[in-house]
Write a protein that binds this DNA or RNA. Structure first.
Lengths: 110, 110
DNA sequence: TACGACGTGTCGGCAACCGATATATGGGGA
DNA sequence: TCCCCATATATCGGTTGCCGACACGTCGTA
């Protein structure tokens, strides 16, 4: 069992659920998935890609050149999919803890 | 708008929604709220209390001595309550992003 | 008397993020 | 032509916040 993923890493994994993407495309996908809230810096992105790969959550593809620009696509490993799913459940449980204590409308009579 | 709270800080705030608690009681409350998953070290706890106080999310009470032991209770400020609620919504939204992409049962015919 | 629960606190190390910077291609507008 | 912006990858130093270990002290109980 690993420590919780921080938001940037979590969204990197989330961006790859639908299929492999290269770094810059992940940047845009994360922005979209987070409704414009999470704007990854490239320092964060490439650091995370390297780390998540080392942890076995991502699998890097071969570098290919598209329209004169080099690209490298990353895909989720089964471990990565498991990790991001487990993390989503953790987040949801944590959210519930607070919501249950703030949004309950008291129904009991005065 | 601030950066996301990390899990330990988030649970410290969450523990105080029901009312003020002192440090050691927060430790136990967090353990309970998180279903035994989040066990804060005192280093994390007192560091977080200091920081969250400096950020205006917590208000420390006066030190009082109970049964020979000193205590200091902390309470959530309105800003703190707003922050932890907003964070809960962020967490839930993040969880949804992944759940929507992994848990959909395909209904379309083969 | 020793140990564990209670209770607060410090310190150094570390992982991850963040902003700035670097490098390079391709396309479009002034 | 020249400049800027989007595309695309990569490095680096600084900061933040967590983490484990340690320190100090009380109280109850075996």
């Amino acid at each position: 069992m690993s420590r919780p993923l921080r938001e940037p890493s979590y969204f990197v994994l989330a961006a790859l659920i639908d299929g492999p993407l290269h770094g810059y495309a992940i940047l845009k996908q994360v922005l979209e998935l987070s409704d414009g809230r999470v704007r990854l810096s490239t320092g964060t992105l490439y650091g995370a890609l390297e780390r998540l790969t080392a942890d076995g959550l991502l699998l890097p593809g071969a570098e290919e050149v598209v329209e004169g620009r080099p690209r490298r696509a990353y895909s989720l490993t089964p471990t990565g999919l498991t990790a991001v799913t487990a993390e989503a459940e953790r987040l949801e449980a944590a959210a519930r803890v607070v919501m249950a204590r703030t949004s309950i409308v008291r129904v009991s009579p005065a």
